[in-house]
Design a protein around this nucleic acid. Sequence first.
DNA 1: AACAAAGTGGAACAAACGGGTCGGATATTC
DNA 2: GAATATCCGACCCGTTTGTTCCACTTTGTT
Lengths: 194, 194
Amino acid sequence: MVDKEEYRARIIRTASRIFSHYGFRKTTMEEISQALKKGKSSIYYYFQSKEEIFEAVVLYEANQLRRRLTAAIKEVDSPPDKLRNYIYVRMREFAKLSNYYNAVFDKNLDHFEFIEKIRARYDREELAIIRLLVYVGNNRGSFAVEDSEYTAMAIQTMLKGMEVPLFWRRREIDINYRLEAILTLIFNGILKKQ
Amino acid sequence: MVDKEEYRARIIRTASRIFSHYGFRKTTMEEISQALKKGKSSIYYYFQSKEEIFEAVVLYEANQLRRRLTAAIKEVDSPPDKLRNYIYVRMREFAKLSNYYNAVFDKNLDHFEFIEKIRARYDREELAIIRLLVYVGNNRGSFAVEDSEYTAMAIQTMLKGMEVPLFWRRREIDINYRLEAILTLIFNGILKKQ
DNA sequence: AACAAAGTGGAACAAACGGGTCGGATATTC
DNA sequence: GAATATCCGACCCGTTTGTTCCACTTTGTT
């Protein structure tokens, strides 16, 4: 059937909404099926288990994140703007795509093996992106760094460090403050002094 | 003990936070006690049941609403401003104090009898406030209405009418648009033509 | 029309969950 | 050190929930 995939996508979108509100544990198959106006057992025609739905949801959000980050980079031209945009969007979206987010952080969910894989893949891709941004910025004369690889890793580490307080749900101001601080730090340490 | 009441208050604040996120049903006693870093059974030393906690939470939020509304009125001086302020704050806070809010609207919660009482009391008080605002505005020459009581009831009815779409969680814009429309209507129909 | 395949949902069930109880442990007060 | 206030682990038991089974309707094909 052609629209079986489409229906799977619909389930994913719906489940994503509910999961992101209540979390994996508190979301029931009953709720998902009700939101879809189907019988609970019908869902099992499209997915093997609740866990499989969650996996699909997290994958879906991870792709969404990737798409938005790519768009954010293309949006502007100069390397510093690209990097700044990337970091901003990363921080903002990361908290918004809460299933991906919880999947990565929630201790109660650490029995899902697929999370580790997704996370590892994302890390690899992100490092490549940052490395490229730094490299291009260097070539264009915006940045002045010795080793793109090493610098990219340092930046990524900083970004990871910001995820933790993000997870703690501190005050917005605090987050923004940290974000600004990190950006200033990165740019002041990276921009060619004129 | 002096701080038994204080501890009850702490439970209420904590429970309020969790209830407002997950709703009455999905919030467990386990979670509340964990958030308080106490054993589950310890909570029962302060409250008889989960329902009693919820009742206290709703009452707490109702009082908070009352306090903020009173403050909103005192904040400005002219009667039209007072009324405008009152309505704005009412709408904004109502959605924020989500337990009170859900208590009043959630169909799954209609077996709580205390809700009816709180609601009735709030209605009475609100009517009195609006009546007074209208009456004073009338005396001060800002408004020109025949019967304060009747007008106050009409305004309250309008406000109630706005709670429904508020409950539907429509777009912010829609809500604000309605709010403006209602305000314009009330004021244009109420302000003395010069 | 007839038949297979795709899709649906009600019923049933085992496992887990969750509100509430109880008896005793531990801390505090006098 | 007795009396009282506070806390908690272990348990109870009705309810919830993920999943399966199977009979059913719907859809597409010949």
